[in-house]
Design a protein around this nucleic acid. Structure first.
Length: 555
RNA sequence: UGUCCCGUAGUGUAACUGGCAACACGUCUGAUUUUGAUUCAGAAGAGUCCAGGUUCGAGCCCUGGCGGGACAACCA
């Protein structure tokens, strides 16, 4: 399945580069996260592309932390990023940090000055901003634009030595203040930041800007294809300008459209806002589109990689329906997940013709869709069972295939029962259903000749264990949370988490470990949460089963 | 009144150097089913933003519109 990945424009570019011998038959890509937040599903797409493309051409991929802004970056993020990439199943050739290149980058700056292509500007940030002009009006040259080379060199060294305060001076490339591309209007190359860096500590007080770091870092590593998202497209002329001016290895940048999903947000800044505002429990909250959130939710690496293959790559902006992601995980878990029966909202079912105090052992397949049905496990059957409240109706609609007075139903992997009567509590809720069972209708050896229209799940009251279930729904109730409201947090779905404190489950679930995947029969896929403690497992709903019945009900 | 990018079924992605638009998800039927799941079979749904042009022939090439997006952080 999915053996042939559909072709895409990046694949085509690399193919033809290889054919033309452009990089001497070499393919080296890189994944360049800034360690200022956790990776999300959008990054997964970039990871799959960079690693996947390289892999399909026998090339390699570097991991490079783009750490040029010490005030937002942390080692905690470095670790989570490394962990997430490995978890997705990718291994990187070299692990680098842009900060490893600070000294080289500084020497590049000197070269630029010596070539008359950079100058130190004493203007204030406001002056620089206004001097840039607008997209439709040319900018004005800075009064410091024509400083001599020697003076520039001296000033840059003194910037490095820490003789100036933040913002007092910057180094700018001398390109073209009238360029229609704003990024070419003498972009800032180095700025002063007296801030401690997560790796270089206080060694530096000047830091290179993205544009002066990224392309050169690619070049230093001899990256052949530098793949990034569309918003950097307009930076490409600058990327090329630095490489040409410095006469260094000509890495090439290619852009693709970033992944967007409906009913969620996909920017690190916004995700950080959700974390810091306690709208979620953390970066790995199962409702987050982060890789760690998806992992905790129960998504598998395979499902995420397959999803990334399915959505493809192109240069046009798009929004993928979250249903596509759900399809990917259902498809994977269908063949992998152990089945179990868990009653979420229990009512008691009493079998009037079953002997008091007796039990019998029945067998049920662990996964009917896996090879050899995944083996079998034992279930304990008895006179009193828990069944789902929703599986009984006092006055059923015509198409209701479950329990109702006089109606037959099969208890999964057990017997057919017929509903004889029921009782209600003071509040008028169903409290108990009384049935008779047909001993000769035992699953696998049914000779009763009785046909049951439906099958329901159950668990024996004496053996059942209590478990906590966390039912997750989409984090936002708006398809496009950013549209229409001033604050995207107003679109948060108040019902994105519903906790069932005490569901009743098959006893073998007491043995589960965090990260285990299950399909709770007729309900959905679930994953054991790290919050589980001995005697009280906690399960996150990854995704519900497809449900033609409820869809039909809604219509 | 600027520059650049993009425009193919509801969604997303294909269509080798032009040869009567394909795949996936979704939707709808029907069959099977001890999960109203899965599986299987089938159907509907675009004539490729619009208008011209080149060509025997254009989603692919050209021109002009229209529509969407990006660009003025000492962020990446």
């Amino acid at each position: 399945m999915g053996k042939d990945k559909p072709s895409n424009f990046l694949f085509d570019i690399i193919s033809s580069d290889l054919k033309s011998g452009k990089h001497a038959g070499r393919v080296l890509t890189r994944f360049p996260p800034e360690p200022n937040g956790y990776l999300h599903i959008g990054h997964a797409k970039a990871i799959c592309l960079n690693f996947g493309l390289a892999e399909s051409f026998g090339g390699k991929t570097n991991l490079r932390f783009d750490d040029t802004n010490p005030v937002t970056e942390k080692t905690e993020y470095v670790e989570s990023i490394r962990n997430d990439i490995s978890w997705l199943g990718f291994g990187w050739a070299g692990e680098y940090y842009t900060s490893d290149y600070f000294e080289t980058l500084f020497s590049y700056a000197i070269q630029l000055i010596e070539k008359g292509l950079a100058y130190v500007d004493d203007s204030t940030p406001e002056e620089i901003a206004s001097g840039k002009g607008t997209p439709t009006e040319a900018g004005l040259p800075s009064p410091y634009r024509n400083r001599g080379i020697a003076e520039n060199l001296d000033l840059l060294q003194r910037m490095r030595k820490g003789e100036y305060k933040d913002g007092e001076k910057v180094l700018r490339a001398k390109i073209d203040m009238a360029s229609p591309n704003m990024h070419l209007r003498d972009p800032i190359v180095y700025r002063i930041k007296h801030a401690s860096h997560h790796r270089t500590g206080d060694e530096w007080c000047i830091y290179p800007m993205y544009d002066f770091a990224h392309g050169q870092s690619d070049s230093i590593e001899h990256i052949t294809h530098s793949i990034c998202t569309l918003e950097f497209e307009i930076h490409r002329p600058l990327y090329d300008w630095f490489i040409e001016s410095l006469e260094i290895y000509p890495s090439q940048q290619y852009e693709f459209a970033r992944l967007n999903l409906n009913y969620t947000v996909m920017s690190k800044r916004k995700l950080l806002e959700l974390v810091e505002g306690n709208h979620v429990s953390g970066w790995d909250d199962p409702r987050m589109p982060t890789i760690s959130g998806l992992r905790r939710r129960g998504y598998t690496p395979e499902s995420i990689r397959h999803f990334c293959d399915m959505v493809g790559v192109a240069r046009r902006e798009h929004v993928i329906d979250i249903g596509q992601l759900e399809f990917a995980i259902r498809e994977d878990l269908n063949i992998k997940a152990q089945r179990a029966m868990v009653v979420m909202d229990p009512i008691k079912l009493v079998i009037q013709n079953y002997p008091d105090g007796e039990t019998e052992s029945l067998q049920s397949e662990n996964n009917p869709n896996a090879e050899n049905k995944g083996g079998f496990r034992d279930l304990t059957f008895s006179k009193e069972l828990w069944i789902e409240r929703a599986d009984f109706m006092e006055t059923p609609s015509r198409k209701f295939h479950r329990l109702a007075p006089g109606q037959h139903v099969r208890l999964k992997s057990a017997f057919i029962v017929r509903c004889e009567s029921f009782s209600k509590n003071e509040k008028g809720e169903i409290s108990e259903v009384v049935c008779t069972y047909f001993p000769e209708s035992k699953s696998g050896s049914d000779t009763s000749g009785i046909k049951a229209k439906g099958v329901i799940h159950w668990v024996s009251t004496m053996q059942a264990i209590p478990v906590e279930i966390r039912l997750y729904d989409r984090l936002f109730r708006e398809e496009f949370p950013l549209k229409g409201t001033a604050d995207f947090k107003e679109s948060l779905n108040p019902d994105s988490l519903r906790i069932i404190e005490r569901a009743l489950a098959e006893p073998f679930l007491s043995q589960t470990r965090p990260g285990d995947h299950f399909q709770f029969l007729r309900t959905g896929y679930f994953c054991t949460d790290p919050d589980s403690v001995d005697g009280k497992p906690v399960f996150n709903r990854t995704v519900g089963l497809r449900d033609a019945w409820s869809r039909q009900q809604k219509q």
